[in-house]
Simulated assay, not measured.
Amino acid sequence: MRISIDPHLCIGAGQCALAAPRVFTQDDDGYGTLLPGHDPDDPMAREGARSCPVHAITVTDS
């Protein structure tokens, strides 16, 4: 899977990090970001994307 976060859409709600803490975190400014060394095939990645209130996260199959 390929996971991307649109930094222009992200509002820092943190729902991605709550839903998939092994994939997402928040940066120093509170915006969503991918954890270094995350497993791109983690099944919770899709749940993290679905939880984003502004649909800033895209998960696509490789």
Rank of each mutant, 00 (worst) to 15 (best):
T25V: 08
T25E: 15
Q26V: 15
Q26G: 09
Q26M: 07
D27S: 08
D28R: 14
D28W: 09
D28V: 11
D29L: 15
D29Q: 15
G30S: 13
Y31D: 02
Y31S: 02
Y31M: 12
Y31I: 01
Y31N: 05
Y31L: 15
G32K: 01
G32E: 00
T33E: 15
T33I: 04
L34T: 10
L34A: 02
L34H: 07
L34C: 08
L34P: 09
L35I: 15
L35E: 04
L35R: 15
P36I: 12
P36Q: 08
P36G: 12
G37T: 11
G37P: 10
G37N: 12
H38K: 06
H38L: 08
D39A: 09
D39C: 06
D39S: 07
D39H: 04
P40Y: 02
P40R: 07
P40E: 07
D41T: 05
D41N: 12
D41Y: 07
D41Q: 10
D42M: 02
D42I: 01
D42A: 11
D42F: 01
P43E: 11
P43L: 13
P43G: 08
P43Y: 10
M44W: 10
M44F: 05
M44C: 05
A45M: 06
A45R: 01
E47I: 09
E47L: 14
E47T: 15
E47F: 07
E47V: 13
G48R: 03
G48P: 06
G48W: 02
G48M: 02
G48H: 01
G48F: 01
A49P: 01
A49I: 04
A49V: 02
R50M: 10
R50A: 11
S51R: 08
S51G: 05
C52N: 04
C52G: 05
P53W: 14
P53N: 14
P53M: 14
V54Y: 12
V54G: 09
V54Q: 07
V54S: 10
H55Y: 11
A56E: 04
A56Q: 06
A56M: 05
I57K: 02
T58W: 04
T58D: 14
T58P: 02
T58K: 13
T58E: 12
V59A: 03
V59E: 00
T60R: 15
T60C: 00
D61R: 01
D61T: 03
D61C: 00
S62H: 14
S62K: 09
S62L: 12
